[in-house]
Amino acid sequence: MSYLRMAGQFVVIAALFAAVAAFSDAPVYRQTPRGSAIVMLTFVHSADRKADCRRLTPEEIQKLPPNMRRVTECPRGRRPIYVELDLGGRRVFQASLAPAGIAGDGPSKVYERFVVPAGNHDIAVRMRDTPRTEGFDHERRGTVTLSPDQMFVIDFRPENGDFVFR
């Protein structure tokens, strides 16, 4: 095999590999427009089950086997959680979050991303996790300044029962 031919072969291989290497980290992909930030609403929370408990009547208690008698009956399933989010006074999200699990006894989850321009934003988030149909059980509002590409997270801490802005 002539050296010239070998050189030709090598050049072809090297050129192919160089092209592959070039596409291994370019072109750059931009997920959101420049100058925008992300507001992320996400939490995992179980609706209050106790609120749905019902007092059993004396007759019903009588019917139960003696070792299993109790005063209240609580359904296994949880109720959905109602949540809404306002950005700059505009409702951007509202949903009734169904509980997870086949028996509907798991937590409700939300994971939503909102792309907003960087800058000041009024944020209001409200949530209902009890049987009430009016008003809210948890609420937080505030004004935040978002820098470009910032990831602003709205989370919920069931321990203290309030929303966390991060």
């Binding site: 980290d25 072109p27 997920q31 959101t32």
Partner: peptide, 11 residues
């Protein structure tokens, strides 16, 4: 705290 929205992808 920053979204990784601009990355050089391995295509």
């Amino acid at each position: 705290t920053k979204a990784a929205v601009e990355v050089g992808l391995d295509w």
